[in-house]
Amino acid sequence: SDLGPIEYPPGEHRLQHPYCLWFSKRPSQIQGSQGYSQALRLVGQVGTVEQWWALYSHMVRLQDIPAHRDLHLFKKGIKPMWEDSANKKGGKWVIRLRKEQAGKAWENLCMAMLGEQFMAGNEICGVVVSTRYQEYLLSIWNRTASDQATTARIRDALKRLLNIPPSATMEYKTHNDCLK
């Protein structure tokens, strides 16, 4: 699950952090975290804006991905799992959107993270889109769930950057709650 060092071609626009894109199919409850880990597939990695758009343009459109799949864009070195040391004290904002609203919001969410628009220091770990039947869930994971000032700042930035409809629900969940 490592694609080796990131390449930075001359002339391309370097990102603050390199990121990895992962894909997974939701395992059944019975498989637990081991099943989840095995279900994760590393799709690609990006270190520059140009590499991001090249990867993005090769991705299947969100509306065409079957239900119960997750796409995860995480900083290189952080696995998109609760158990990763960067995540175990963390949490996530979850936004529920109708399917037709999700594509643009996901694109905005990725751009906001890659462009360091959250002003949250090194708190951001990654973002996830989860496909369901009628709705899609967007999540942004941060390192420290107990840091209320930062989680509030991330929430406010999400509202500003994603153009999400006022009707969309947002809730914060700690990973610890999810593990219980």
Binding site: H13, E50, A54, M111, L114, L161
Partner: peptide, 21 residues
């Protein structure tokens, strides 16, 4: 050090540049 910050419009412009095709 300085953070590398990109706004949405800047990223969108690079999306359509020939080098990212």
């Amino acid at each position: 050090g300085t953070r590398i910050v990109y706004e949405k419009n800047f990223l969108m412009n690079l999306r359509n540049s020939p080098s990212s095709k």
